[in-house]
Amino acid sequence: MSKLAAWDSNPLKCFADFIAGPDFALTSSRQRDLAPKPLSPESAAIYRFMFGKFAAWMLEERLKMSTVTGRDLQRFVALAHDGQRDLNSKIAYRYLRLLERCYDYLERAPNPARDAIVGIDRAQIARDAPMTALNADELQRFMAALPGQRADDDNKASGWKRRRDRAMQVTMALAGLRVAEAIGLLVDEVGRQPDIEGALVLNITPEQKHRTSYEHTTTLPKEGVAELTAWLSERAELNIPGALVFPANLEGEPLHKATVYRQVKATFGRAGLAVSRAGGRTLRNTFASQQLRQGTPQSELTTVLGLALERSAEAYKYAKVNEETSAPEAGPTAKDA
């Protein structure tokens, strides 16, 4: 069986074998060593995740490595990640460069990934906007606009979901959790007792979370501990089955990420914060940016965030953060008039 036929038959296994051996390093334009250096386990995991998404897309589209065209690949990178991926984004370019190396190894000519790269505006890639993070004043406004603060929320039958959302958003903002990590957070991963500073340890494991999550430990500061512990107490009183800290319903089923996005976006709206990405990613960016500004070493932040590579944490140095200003006092509202 030819290499290309083998990749058509089992692309995931063939790709895993490819990146585990010396051939992958030899396809790199940067590789100049006589003895190619093997990939680190962390880098290999990232590449396998990326190729896994491509393989799943090929299956959905009834395509194979031997039949994919350059136009198909442009369609893949433009529509990847819930249809929000810009063809000129950096991740689109990285996908195509990875696939270009695969097709070089398979000796397919012309190389469809190289053809697809021609359609990317390299100058536009360099102008990608930096990630957005809130400054301290904006974070305070976000926290003041959290759900679950209205008087009618005292009714546990109708208000428990708002109090769940409140505790979840506090945990995301102050502990730096990914949305998938918040959705999949387990009761047993929450520390039993606060430490001497009043903070609560969260031991994050990949179980029931995003498959790119790595086991790591982060800390919810005392400012957020009361919200989380109050919710856990209410969750126990409601007798919600299962192990999820923030379940979707009283049956203990998991939340959908789109639901979390809508709830976080609503909080941004109530706070009057106009940001380019009003979702959980901005909260995580805010946590990471603040950690760096407070002097947390980049290597330590990498561990706290559960990142595979230290250079991934470096991007948070360049997050777009507005200059902090004191929030103006609230004026009279129409209700007061």
Rank of each mutant, 00 (worst) to 15 (best):
H256S: 00
G331H: 07
T69N: 07
V118P: 01
C14D: 07
P254T: 05
Q298G: 08
E100W: 01
R192F: 08
T27Q: 15
K335C: 00
P36L: 02
V260Q: 04
L98M: 15
N111S: 02
R97F: 02
E310M: 04
L238Y: 04
G184D: 08
S40H: 03
T205Q: 12
R122T: 05
M131V: 11
L228W: 15
G224T: 07
V321Q: 10
D115G: 04
V264R: 09
Q149I: 08
G331D: 12
N239E: 14
S299E: 13
A173F: 13
L177N: 08
L106N: 02
R150G: 04
R127F: 11
I117M: 14
E300T: 09
V245R: 04
H216Y: 10
T171H: 09
E253S: 11
G306R: 05
H256T: 01
N155A: 07
R94T: 09
A230H: 08
A116P: 09
S158V: 00
P241M: 06
V321K: 08
R127Y: 09
A151P: 01
S89F: 12
L26V: 03
E42Q: 13
G198Q: 11
I183D: 05
Q74H: 02
T325V: 12
L202P: 13
E310I: 06
T267Y: 08
L87S: 12
S29P: 02
E310D: 05
F15K: 02
A319D: 12
L244S: 08
L26A: 15
T267C: 09
Q193F: 10
R108I: 05
E300P: 00
K209D: 03
R75T: 07
K257P: 00
E237K: 07
V201W: 07
K317N: 15
Q74T: 03
R293A: 14
G83D: 07
R235I: 08
G306T: 10
M143N: 13
M168L: 14
G306E: 11
A271I: 03
L238G: 01
V245M: 04
N135L: 11
K64F: 13
L185M: 12
A313S: 10
N10L: 09
G272W: 10
W231M: 03
F54Q: 03
M131E: 14
G224L: 08
Q124E: 13
